[in-house]
Amino acid sequence: MIKAESVSKKLDKFKLKDISFELPSGYICGLVGRNGSGKTSLLHLILGLYHADSGRISVFGMEYADNEKMIHDRIGTVLVEELFLPELSIKENADYFGKFYSKYSWDRMREYLVRFGLADAECASEECGEDADGVHGKDNKNTEDTDVKRHANEYNNNHLYPGKNYKKQNGKESGERRQFGKLSKGQRLKCQFAFALSYSPDILILDEPTGNFDPDFREHFLDILKEFIADGTRTVILATHLTDDLDRLADYLIYLEDGEEVFAGDIESFRNEYRVVSGEAYKLKLIPKEKLISMDEKKYGSRALVHHRKYYKYDPEVQVSAPAIEDFMYLYSKR
């Protein structure tokens, strides 16, 4: 679905070098790396915001030069910076940008807003705006929309996100009529996430969205991602520092370091290729140099990151385990 072939890009004082990967549909791809490793720049290349100096990037088998409109119509994006306009309300923003998307639906957007606790599930028609008829009682034949509605009801009934009364209070607008700039950072991200889902994209690109989510909503967010790829035709790219989530969720991993691709492939291959070896430092130093990537020597127990070979026999007195992404990042930085 997304293919990068030897992509390089020089930025101001930084260079992305020779990035290659092929991400199929139905995968959640974790994009990880330290600060300044090039994650956001790579996402900008995938989104067509930057143009590669060399190599090529294709999305859905198409390139941006000829098919920018078609590609963007199928990509949902949540970036670190806010994309909505702060002086417009949630609904005004959604309608303003939504008109560009062929599959945008305010009904769907609103259901996600309700699900995320940004709008009230039940409200008088004048508070829902002109599209009130589209929200309640509509015989929606779209399976996806039915699922979203069901989830919205479930969550409201379970009071996970109890339907806060967003009716107009003290003369201030409420629900989807609230001014976007007056929402908290977390609410703004949720709002943009709802918008990204509202036009049924085939690819969801998320650049560190979870930092401002509360723990409850983070779980909810991960569930939504699982739902999103459930049919096997869609893809998620999630750039995040919260690697625990990726360990549970990701099927594909791209790890960048200083603009270079350290690893790009499915998570099984990642876990097969590397091992974390724990034990006494003198034992770890016996590991052949060509296998050893790095070592973190501590007074009581050291750890080493090694290239793994299936038939290699480790010292019985060391513990060998497949690396968690966070361990890998930490140990790789010790080179």
Binding site: E68, F97, F100, Y101
Partner: peptide, 14 residues
């Protein structure tokens, strides 16, 4: 233009 308009489905002419 606002960044979002560079992400919306618009071609260069538009």
């Amino acid at each position: 233009l606002p960044k979002m308009l560079y992400l919306c489905p618009m071609d260069k002419n538009e």
